[in-house]
């Protein structure tokens, strides 16, 4: 879905998540007991994303992030963190399958050229899950 707001380049949901982002990491002390970490992106493209997740009983019960990027990159990371932690937390199996399109849909769509910004979020998530799994083998 490709959407542009009337007075704004993005949908109202993107705007809300950009102006009032949820779950971003304000203080490093807040992630001391997190058990999964992922970082993706590069400065050349202008997007870098870091994600910390806390997994308990195969569920993501908490998520923090940091993003360098445009409004849609910030909003999609924020939305992803909400999707992961709502309703008691997302199961790891479901989280592994989460696609950029699901994030974009929850945001009420992104302009066509910005769709790649949401892909970065689910890549960061998978990196974080992989990190957790490698630390918790056997």
């Amino acid at each position: 879905m490709q959407v542009e707001g009337e007075n704004w380049f993005y949908s109202d949901i993107v705007k809300e998540h950009f102006l009032n982002p949820k779950n971003f990491l304000k203080d490093k002390k807040d992630i001391l007991d997190f058990n999964g970490y992922g970082k993706v992106g590069n400065v050349k493209c202008g997007d870098i994303m870091e994600m910390w997740i806390k997994i308990k009983n195969d569920k993501i019960i908490d998520c923090k992030w940091k993003t360098f990027g445009c409004a849609s990159a910030i909003a999609s990371t924020s939305m992803l963190s909400v999707m992961l932690t709502e309703n008691g937390g997302m199961k790891l199996n479901d989280a592994m399958k989460l696609s950029g399109k699901e994030i974009t849909d929850r945001l009420g769509g992104l302009p066509g050229i910005k769709i790649h910004c949401s892909v970065l979020g689910d890549e960061a998530l998978r990196e974080a899950i992989k990190d957790y799994q490698s630390k918790n083998k056997g």
Binding site: L19, G46, F68, G69, C70, A71, A73, I74, I113, K114
Partner: peptide, 29 residues
């Protein structure tokens, strides 16, 4: 440490119109 389009849009929220050299605001990325 910050990306131009994000800053442009925050300023826009305060009624300030500016431009950026960031890829995110260009058609070519």
């Amino acid at each position: 440490g910050i990306e131009g389009e994000s800053l442009l849009l925050l300023l826009n929220e305060a009624g300030i119109n500016v431009s950026t050299g960031s890829a995110c605001s260009s058609k070519s990325l």
